[in-house]
Amino acid sequence: PGLLEPTSALVRVAKSATTLGIAIEGGANTRQPLPRIVTIQRGGSAHNCGQLKVGQVILEVNGVSLRGREHREAARIIAEAFKTKERDHVDFLVTEFN
């Protein structure tokens, strides 16, 4: 308990563009219980970062776990992390193990 999943990686996405530029699917009570990246839009901050990939599952955003969050709540947490002016980046803990 409390240990990172073995294949997880911390990715810091600088807010280098006006949009984050990812599409996610999944959330608690769906077939995909944690949000998975399904699209990365060219020219968005995530694309510019170069380290996020389609198929990765997002475990945490700025240290906040997405486990047990329904889709809309997970999306809101990610959107607010990108919108806040407190940081010039968003930290994602991702895994390719689904």
Binding site: A23, T30, R31, V38, R72, A75
Partner: peptide, 15 residues
Amino acid sequence: REKRLTLPPSEITLL
């Protein structure tokens, strides 16, 4: 397995 099959697909949100 049976439970997984009954779970609905998720919507997709662009962020």
